[in-house]
């Protein structure tokens, strides 16, 4: 039976979904992931779904569940590389996956994870977006 490997990279876990995600596989992934987060004390999870072309409501909900479980275990989740067709399907299904961070590619995803964990450790002050919008531009005279 197929299984989705979970790679450990420092304090993060990397999951690359490269096969058709069926329900059994998704449930196994949930089990393995939660187990590994606890075992390695991981701070972040990055899920790459760039090779996933078909998605249904179950898989969509599962992604949401994984994010929620990771948050309970104090790990951030970033989903990267979602295909346009998958995004449209999820929106049409009414699954907007609130609470999940998303990024265009693995590189940006890792950057987000690093920023998030650094912020959680108190190394970075506040999110730069948090300052009032519209300001912040110098017009040197």
């Amino acid at each position: 039976m197929d299984h989705i490997p979970i790679l450990r990279m420092g304090e993060f876990l990397l999951i690359t979904v490269q096969v058709d995600m069926h329900d059994r596989l998704a449930i196994n992934l949930q089990d393995n992931l939660t187990e590994q987060i606890v075992r390695y004390n991981s701070r972040g999870v990055l899920i790459d779904i760039s090779s996933l072309d078909v998605v249904d409501s179950f898989i969509g909900r599962m992604l949401g569940n994984i994010a929620a479980m990771s948050r309970v275990l104090d790990a951030q989740t970033v989903v990267v590389g979602m295909q346009p067709a998958v995004a449209i399907t999820l929106v049409e299904l009414g699954l907007s996956l609130p609470g999940i961070r998303t990024a265009l590619n693995v590189e940006r995803g890792m950057q987000i994870l690093r920023e998030e964990t650094a912020r959680a450790m108190g190394e970075l002050p506040e999110e730069p977006d948090a300052q009032p919008l519209g300001g912040g531009f110098d017009e040197a005279v």
């Binding site: 590389g81 346009p84 995004a87 929106v91």
Partner: peptide
């Protein structure tokens, strides 16, 4: 929402 799901 769809754009957000893709990370934009």
């Amino acid at each position: 929402t769809a754009a957000r799901l893709m990370g934009a």
